[in-house]
C-alpha cells in the first residue's frame, strides 16, 4: 500500500508544529535577545549587535566556567565510560545478582539532585563527614579533616560525585547493548581460543559501537549544559572555581541570588553553549562513523 505524501505530511504536522514552536522559535528568539542589552524587565531593550559576544571573549569568568565544563565533558566522560565498560563486563560475565547490581548502580539516577548534593555535602564534610571518618578509620588521619570543598579541590570533589551519579545511566545503556549480542559469537570465539580481552576488542566493542556513539552524544549534551548538581552542590553562592558555563549563565541572567539580571549577555552564553553542543555532536558523529554491522 502506498501512503500519499499528503497523509505523511498530515501525520508529521503535529510533531513538526511542536518542534517549531517549542524549539526553533525559542532558539531563534534567544539569538535575537543575545544581541540586546536587556535585563528582562519590560520591553526596554537596547540593541548592541554582537557586543555581548565580543565581551564574552574577554570575560575570564566565562572562560573559567567553559574550562570547567570541558573538563567535565572530557575527564568525566573518559572515567564514566571507562567505569561503565568495566562494570558492564563484570555484570554481564554471568555473576549472580546481576539485576541487583545494575539497580544499585543506577539508583542515583532516580534520586532528586538536591538530595544527592546534600548527601555528597555530608560525605565531604571535614571532621564528621563520611569520607573523613572512613579515612580516619583506616589510619589516614592526616586526610580525615581535609577540606575537600576548599577552593582548590571543590571542582574535583564535585566531579567525583557527578561521575558516581552518571555512571549508572551509561552502564544500563551499555548493558542493554551487550545483551543484544548473540552468545554464539562468544562461544565461537572461545572455541577458537580467543582470550577475554580479544573477545572484548573484536566482538563487544564493534557490536556495541552504535550504542557507544549514542551514549557519547548523550553525555556530551548533558555535560555541556550541566547545571543542577554544580549549582546546588556548592552552597548558597557557588564558588567561582566550581562554575560551569550553565551555572555562570544562570547567575548572570536569572538573578536567583544576586539581582544581576543581564539577560541579553546571559542569552549570548546560552547561544554559545548551543553552538558548542552542535559542534561537539558533529565531531563525535564524524569520529565514530563506522560501517554498520548487522547481526
Amino acid at each position: 500500500m502506498r501512503i500519499s505524501k499528503q497523509l505523511i505530511a498530515l501525520f508529521l504536522l503535529p510533531a513538526s508544529a511542536l518542534y517549531f514552536f517549542f524549539f526553533l522559535v525559542p532558539t531563534f528568539s534567544a539569538f535575537r535577545y543575545s544581541l540586546y542589552d536587556w535585563r528582562g524587565f519590560g520591553t526596554d531593550m537596547n540593541f548592541v549587535g554582537i557586543q555581548n559576544y565580543v565581551e564574552l571573549f574577554s570575560d575570564r569568568l566565562f572562560w573559567l566556567s567553559m574550562g570547567n565544563t570541558v573538563t567535565i565533558l572530557l575527564a568525566g566522560g573518559v572515567i564514566i565510560f571507562g567505569l561503565a565498560f568495566v562494570m558492564t563486563m563484570m555484570i554481564s560475565s554471568g555473576i549472580r545478582g546481576r539485576k541487583l547490581f545494575r539497580a544499585i548502580i543506577f539508583l542515583p539516577n532516580v534520586i532528586a539532585i538536591i538530595a544527592l548534593t546534600t548527601l555528597w555535602g555530608y560525605i565531604y564534610t571535614p571532621q564528621f563527614g563520611l569520607l573523613g571518618a572512613f579515612l580516619g578509620k583506616i589510619g589516614l588521619t592526616q586526610w580525615a579533616a581535609f577540606p575537600w570543598l576548599g577552593p582548590d579541590t571543590i571542582f574535583w570533589s564535585m566531579l567525583v560525585a557527578i561521575i558516581w551519579i552518571e555512571v549508572g545511566f551509561y552502564l544500563v545503556l551499555l548493558l542493554a547493548g551487550v545483551d543484544k549480542i548473540p552468545e554464539d559469537f562468544y562461544e565461537a570465539a572461545r572455541l577458537d581460543g580467543a582470550s577475554q580481552f580479544q573477545m572484548f576488542r573484536k566482538i563487544t566493542i564493534p557490536l556495541l559501537w552504535d550504542v557507544l556513539t549514542i551514549g557519547m552524544v548523550l553525555w556530551s549534551i548533558h555535560a555541556i549544559k550541566i547545571f543542577e548538581f554544580p549549582f546546588s552542590f556548592t552552597g548558597l553562592e557557588p564558588n567561582v572555581n566550581s562554575y560551569t558555563a550553565a551555572v555562570y549563565m544562570y547567575i548572570l541572567g536569572f538573578g536567583q541570588r544576586q539581582p544581576i539580571y543581564r539577560l541579553g549577555y546571559s542569552t549570548a552564553i546560552g547561544v554559545m553553549l548551543l553552538l558548542v553542543v552542535i559542534l561537539v555532536v558533529l565531531v563525535l558523529r564524524r569520529l565514530m562513523r563506522r560501517e554498520q554491522l548487522q547481526y
Binding site: G121, T125, L149, T153
Partner: peptide
C-alpha cells in the same frame, strides 16, 4: 580553624550547633 576553608553552607554553622 584552617579546615574551615572547605566549609560550604551549612557545614560551618553546624560546627556551632555541635558545640565545636
Amino acid at each position: 580553624p584552617a579546615v574551615t576553608v572547605g566549609y560550604v553552607w551549612p557545614q560551618g554553622q553546624n560546627t556551632l550547633a555541635f558545640g565545636q
